[in-house]
Design a protein around this nucleic acid. Structure first.
Lengths: 141, 141
DNA sequence: TCAAAAAAGTTGTATATACAACTTTTTGTT
DNA sequence: AACAAAAAGTTGTATATACAACTTTTTTGA
C-alpha cells in the first residue's frame, strides 16, 4: 500500500494538537494553586463572572463564558451544590455570600498562578495569546 | 462585607480562561471536518504519531503526545476497539492497515481544517501560537 | 535465579465538554 | 386568556482529561 499522504505529512504542524497542549499545560498550573480550595478553573471562571456582574441567566452566562449551554448547565449544577451560587428567582442566577467570600480568598492564589505563567510566557507571549484569541473570536463569533 | 480583591479584579485578564477558549474554538473547527470519520482530534493525534513512528509503548506515546498515562490509556482503548491500533506483542503498540488507511484518507480533511484555522490566525497568529507553546514546553518540560 | 524495588500499565472516580433530544418556560398573536 | 411557536433550560450519551490507587511487568541486586 502506498499511503501517499502519510509520507508527506508532518504532525508537528498540527494546530489542534498544539492548542490542546497549551491548554493542558496552563490548566495544570492553575490546578496546582486552586486544589486547596477544591474548585476547578472552569468553575472559578463562572464564579468570577458572577462576582462582578450579579443576576445573570444561563443564556447570558453562555454568551459571556462562550460555553455550550449543556456544558455550562453542568458546571452550574456543581456550584449550586457547593452553595456558591443560588437561583432563588428562576432563571436568574446569583453568587452567594459564600461564593463571593471564596472568590475573594482565591484571587491572591489565582494571581500567583498568573504570575507563574507570565514568567514563562513573558509579555510578548501573553500578547501573542491575546492576539490568537482575538482573531479566533472575531472570525468565529 | 468588603471583598476588596473582587473590586480590583479584572476577569478578562485570566490566561487560563483565554487558553480554554482558544482550545474550544479550534477543537470545534477540527470536529467539523472529522465528524464524518467518527473520530476525535485527540484520537487522531495518537494515530498520526503511530502512522509515522510504528512500534511504541504507552510510555513513549505519553512523552510524545504529552498526555498523562491514564488519559492516553483510555484513548488507546477506543482505538483498539475500532481496530485502528493493535498490540500483538505487549507492550508494543502498532497502527493497523485499517488505521493507516484511515489516516491517509483523513489527512486531506485535516488539511482543510488547518487551512480554515490558518485563514483566521494568519501567519503571525500561527507564529504566536508556536511561540506560546515553545515557551510553555521549555519551562515546564 | 529469584525476591524486592521500580516502572509501566490499568482502573476508580471526578470534572469538563459537546451534540442531540427532550422538557419547561417565555413570548407573540389572535 | 389561550394556544402555538420560539427560546431557554435540562438530560442522555459519549469522549477527554487528571489524580490517586492498584496491578502487572520489568529491572536490579544479592
Amino acid at each position: 500500500m502506498e499511503f501517499e499522504n502519510i509520507q508527506s505529512f508532518d504532525l508537528t504542524t498540527c494546530i489542534g494538537s498544539k492548542v490542546m497542549r497549551i491548554s493542558r499545560i496552563t490548566a495544570k498550573i492553575f490546578r496546582k494553586y486552586l486544589r486547596p480550595f477544591n474548585i476547578t478553573g472552569s468553575q472559578l471562571t463562572v464564579l468570577f463572572i458572577l462576582a462582578k456582574r450579579e443576576g445573570l441567566t444561563q443564556k447570558r452566562l453562555c454568551e459571556i463564558a462562550q460555553l455550550e449551554k449543556s456544558s455550562l448547565n453542568r458546571n452550574l449544577k456543581r456550584l449550586f451544590e457547593k452553595r456558591y451560587l443560588s437561583r432563588k428567582e428562576f432563571p436568574i442566577i446569583n453568587i452567594t455570600d459564600e461564593g463571593k467570600s471564596l472568590v475573594n480568598t482565591i484571587i491572591p492564589e489565582w494571581e500567583k498562578a498568573m504570575k507563574e505563567i507570565r514568567q514563562i510566557l513573558g509579555e510578548d507571549g501573553e500578547d501573542a495569546l491575546d492576539m490568537t484569541l482575538t482573531k479566533l473570536m472575531t472570525k468565529k463569533a
